[in-house]
Structures are given as C-alpha cells and as structure tokens.
Amino acid sequence: MVLEDPTQMNLLGAALLLGVGLFCIMSQNNLIKVVIGLEILAKAAVLAFIALGGASVQGYVIIIIAIEAIVAAVALSIVVNVWRHSGSLDASDITELKG
C-alpha cells in the first residue's frame, strides 16, 4: 500500500505528538501535567486515525474521544485524592510504594 503525501505528513505529525506526549509523562513532575500528557498521547492516536482513515473513521474517532474523556475524568479524580491526602501534586512525592 502506498501512502499518499498529505497522509504521510499527518502521520508524521501524529508520531511526533506521540513523542511529545510520552516526553510529557516522563518529564513533568506535576500530576496534572502528567494527565495532560496522557491526553496528548490519546490525541496523537486520534490524529493517526484521521491521517490514515480520512472521513471513514468519524465514528471511531468520536468513540475514542468519549473513552479518553472518561479515562481523563478517572485520572483526575485520583489526582484529587492524591491532593487530599498529601496536599501536593508533586509526582516525586508519591513514591512510598517501591522495591
């Protein structure tokens, strides 16, 4: 299968976005920013869908966005609980369980 040019550009963009998302999760100390990283990853996937599927993937994309919203809500609710317990959103503070 030959990828057409704009498709390739979009796919490249999606792959870059994936890298950005991963980097965000790896480097950010603030838990909110980590969750934002997760969202960037999800958006990278959505972009890849659109890049490769065009109009035919509308349905998929909407479902994915809905699911990602639920995941984000759950993740944020856990962040809220972290805040309630420790009064901090610092990722390096939540290292009690290790080894």
Binding site: A14, L18, G37, L41, A42, A44, A45, F49, L52, V71
Partner: peptide, 13 residues
C-alpha cells in the same frame, strides 16, 4: 492509559 493510547496508535496503523 498511556499504554492504551499507544495501542490505539497502533490500531490506527
């Protein structure tokens, strides 16, 4: 969730 997103990317491929 990060894993799911990466898998989703693979699904797009």
């Amino acid at each position: 969730a990060a894993g799911s997103a990466i898998a989703l990317f693979a699904m797009a491929l």
